[in-house]
Amino acid sequence: MNVSRYGEDGIRIIFGDTIDIETNKTIRRYYFFLKSLHLQEIVDIIPSFRSCLIHFDRDLTSYQALLSLLTEKEKEVGTIDVPEPATHEIPVLYGGEYGPDMEFVVEYSGLTKNEVIEIHTSTVYTVYTVGFIPGFPYLGTLDKRLYVPRLDTPRVKVPEGSVGLAQLQTGIYTFESPGGWRIIGKTNIRLFDYMKAPYSLLKIGDKVRFVRI
């Protein structure tokens, strides 16, 4: 664990320098530890692949004060209850008009469309982080055979529900947005509902399996 400042009101707690499942578990535990403290001075927590970024209220605390508090409480990290991650099945319609990059993936990987789908649906993925747009899950780890680079020029609009690949990750566009991932299909499940708490279907550490429809 390595701690650094992020601007005047941020603390960046770094747990590793690669994308791996053990780091994800450690970050997830630390994130639940932070939440369990119910500190008013913590405005926001952004857990991601390598770190937890804490945004604190500079009117209520300082970097030094918050860091001492966290260090003092640190022994609780190992003992707090961390909920079991939820498992979700996401139905996907692969290829055709919903998967405009399927042909590219087939060509790039040298696999058939069926093999691509089979490989994509045979892994249970972990949500490494949620973000960029609300509810968007960064899922890993993708089978190496499906490795594809991002688009050189991102699309201006990727439709909501699109399922994409980028390097060794797969993800789902929760809103229509610009994006550079290679789109291979689409789900009809709503992953983010701003009308209803807890808003995001997927959370850090959750498990996801894609099902072909």
Partner: peptide, 10 residues
Amino acid sequence: HGYGDIGVPP
């Protein structure tokens, strides 16, 4: 504020 964990920006 408080929803950075699910990607909701301020």
